[in-house]
Design a protein around this nucleic acid. Structure first.
Lengths: 238, 238
DNA sequence: GCAGATACGCTACGACTCGTAGCGAAAGAG
DNA sequence: CTCTTTCGCTACGAGTCGTAGCGTATCTGC
């Protein structure tokens, strides 16, 4: 019998509410189990199909019906969980970023180089390229989507910068925090610089990222431009 | 969808073929005037309507029919000139970047700060935000569109970096080129860093760009991280 | 076990956009 | 004045979106 309960849209949101607010990709939350629980298999199939379809036909060609067919699932099942294509793709792509890690390799430069290489590899995958830019584009106009992107994709990356900074301080490569605000701003600026530069290089300029390029980039971050006269460095606040 | 199809219909391409292949914004090319020339007024109205519609309803909501109505033009007229929404938006957005200039303010840092401020102002405009990211996203899968974006938007910006570098060399702030390749690579990396960082800050992190932020960013570019011990700087090639 | 509740696959639907085709009228070029 | 091209308009088939309704499958609580 058709449950005439309201819930016009966003059944996902309502159903997920009782679960931990910081929960991740695991969209199926049969916590308040009453009726038939949502199939976790279907969830995985949908997310996998979304990533595969993204890699093959890109964002523009990605249709909900296509994803449903590919996942062996009814289209209505998609809409029961994700209110729109955007939200679905956020979940599908976010998990790709979980593999990013920052290791303590003994020097700040080595650590940065390693994480940049990981990031470059991730952005080299076709499903990541198409999806990430499309998400950013949609997010520029949809505040809710932007928030979700922040929580699921951007903030975890920023955390890597925090960790790397802390490691460098522990090794004595960086001085201690002068104050809290300055530290936050410094992390922000370093994060935007690393992520933005790598993304721009790969996604906009469209040129590959080689170990040599990574070496030059990190050197730029950590030391002045080669050939820069000392005169300018002495007057950072003209 | 449109980008998926190879190129079943390219009326624009065929019609524009006799014109110079490297021609730019001036889409109307009544060069081989025989019959009624294309209305330059209509062209301007269409591009203006496209920018306005982008600012209001964004990329996703932008439809060809909507632009046509807004411009007071038949939808068919749009398709007579631009083969797809992507190409139209490239032309509509490219002109926005023409206002970017690099001045010789007497110091490299001041010059960079000025151009970053201009770029940030440009990216603060809603039509630029939505359009630029959407174009990048489409371009990540459509090589022809990507090439067009490069020619019309990216390369002109890169030229600014070249100019700023030359100015700094003329002032003696930067040493002369060691060799051609190194100079090119250095320009590439600086360009990706400036453009990518500003774009990431504004479009992804979604935080504003203040003069203070610009000062910190350019200082980061031109000098080592504050607090960085000299030990690391001495070993750029561990 | 047996209800009740929920999710499932399937089909169909209206609304919308896409890009094209055909028409008669308008506006310059020669 | 004629010829050529563009113009606005209308209509069309194809495709997608997101929703609704149906009957069935599956799990929980009594």
């Amino acid at each position: 019998m058709a449950p005439t309960t309201p819930q016009p849209t966003t059944p996902q949101q309502a159903a997920t509410a009782p679960a931990s607010p910081t929960d991740e990709a695991a969209v199926d939350v049969p916590s308040r189990g009453k009726g038939r629980p949502r199939s976790a298999t279907a969830d995985r199939a949908i997310l996998d199909a979304t990533r595969a379809a993204l890699a093959e036909i890109g964002w523009g060609g990605l249709t909900m019906g296509h994803v449903a067919t590919r996942a062996g699932v009814a289209k209505t099942t998609l809409y029961r969980r994700w209110p729109s294509k955007n939200e679905l793709v956020v979940d599908a792509v976010a998990s790709l970023f979980d593999e990013l890690e920052i290791a303590d390799l003994g020097s700040l430069q080595a650590d940065i180089e390693a994480v940049v290489a990981q990031f470059a590899d991730l952005l080299a995958r076709p499903e990541t390229q198409a999806a990430l830019l499309a998400l950013f584009a949609e997010g520029s106009r949809d505040p809710q989507l932007r928030r979700r992107i922040r929580e699921r994709i951007v903030d975890p990356q920023k955390h890597l910068v925090q960790l790397g900074r802390a490691n460098a301080q522990a090794r004595g490569e960086l001085g201690p925090d002068r104050d809290e605000d300055t530290a936050c701003e410094e992390i922000d600026i370093i994060f935007d610089t690393i992520a933005g530069t790598v993304e721009h290089r790969m996604l906009v300029s469209g040129e590959p990222i080689s170990p040599a390029w990574i070496r030059r980039f990190t050197t730029l971050l950590l030391s002045p431009l080669p050939g820069l006269t000392a005169a300018l460095a002495e007057t950072p606040h003209p």
